[in-house]
Design a protein around this nucleic acid. Structure first.
Lengths: 207, 207
DNA sequence: GCCAGCATAGACCGACCAGTCTAGCGGCGA
DNA sequence: TCGCCGCTAGACTGGTCGGTCTATGCTGGC
């Protein structure tokens, strides 16, 4: 979910401990992530990824022998790690829970508008497309959500929320944000993000 | 969103005023809806739809001259109309708002488990895949969400909610439910649906 | 300078895609 | 009985898909 804190700029930011990654690999993941999160996994052909990233096909299969699925998996993992880093950044910035949620809504709304509603949640779109299919890709999405949820819960616990409740609240926050994103993109209107955030704030407020 | 009240059985139920529709057309929409909501628009080939519905290609293009996009549009519209009918049915059954949300959660959880997490929200997956693309298909999704939201808001108003607040609450309910569905499918666990419903109930309770 | 390897480069392939087209079925009105 | 027409039927096509393969840089260690 915090996935949508990310824009292409953030993707190549220092938050990702990926400076040691081969530039071609990095470029492929970056371009593929953007395309996948805009139109999903199946709608994007390798040709488009290769053209936009100015990479020949041979390089793709050198860095990702598993082809398209492996590349998508790398994108999912990358999004997860960037999200974890974003949570850590916020948790170290002195914001309380309400402040965090408000800030998240601001960033999300700005991102949606800036990308002209083109970008969406990579995890949501790939997760939905893979559906019940039990492949490594849907497994990667599941793990990504789980990791984000746990990190979020850990922070909520540090803010004084009880253990069991923290897990539940984290899942609720992620679900509500993802849904708001779906609706906001369809309507070309950031209002759902704000509305959902209001609700989350009262939830957090009451414990 | 109430989209997910629907399973294949419900789709061919009497709730749809489509008894006058040509059986082939009906069969195509029914099968295509199920496939699309499981794996999205682009992952499903016509061959699969035709095989499962035992329909030759000529018939598809007879009933849907616009081809795959027109078929998908019909699926979206059908989902919207079934959702409206479902809302009307519930609003006439004497349930209060909390009762409605609880019932929705029950039905959704049961549906997810029964379909082994294969089925998802047609509107969400197609909306995400189409992204910012301004085609008739994404427009159909937008309109579907809008119609569902308005019908839901109308009912909330009948339950005593103020006009402006009803619209906001309706959007929030849809967003939260859609997000819960995304997370639940990925985790193969209906808990997010319950969690989100708890939050929605307190929202509705406080007005 | 030379070799070894990683990495680039893109021609090429069979499979599959959505969509077109012609042919034929079957029931109903004249 | 005949002809019409809504509908079925599926062969066929051009294009695109993901993936493979061979050839060619390019560069750091010797």
């Amino acid at each position: 979910m915090l996935a949508f804190l990310l824009d292409p700029a953030a993707l190549s930011g220092p938050a990702d401990g990926a400076s040691d990654m081969h530039p071609t690999r990095q470029r492929l993941i970056s371009v593929a992530t953007r395309l996948f999160q805009q139109r999903g996994y199946h709608a994007i052909g390798l040709a488009e990824i290769l053209a936009l990233s100015e990479t020949p096909k041979g390089s793709l299969y050198h860095h990702f022998p598993g082809g398209k699925p492996e590349l998508a998996e790398a994108c999912v993992t990358r999004i997860a790690e960037s999200s974890l880093a974003a949570i850590d950044r916020l948790s170290g910035s002195g914001l309380d829970m309400i402040g965090f949620l408000r800030r998240l809504a601001e960033v999300t709304a700005a991102w949606l508008q800036r990308t002209d509603w083109l970008d969406g949640s990579l995890l949501a779109v790939i997760g939905q497309e893979q559906g019940g299919v039990n492949g490594p890709l849907s497994e990667a999405v599941r793990i990504a959500y789980q990791r984000i949820e746990m990190r979020l819960a850990r922070w909520l616990m540090a803010e004084g929320v009880a253990v069991a409740r923290a897990r539940d609240m984290a899942a609720t926050i992620i679900a509500a944000q993802e849904g708001a994103l779906v609706l906001a993109r369809s309507r070309h209107d950031a209002a759902p993000v704000t509305l959902v955030t209001d609700m989350l704030c009262t939830m957090v407020d009451r414990g």
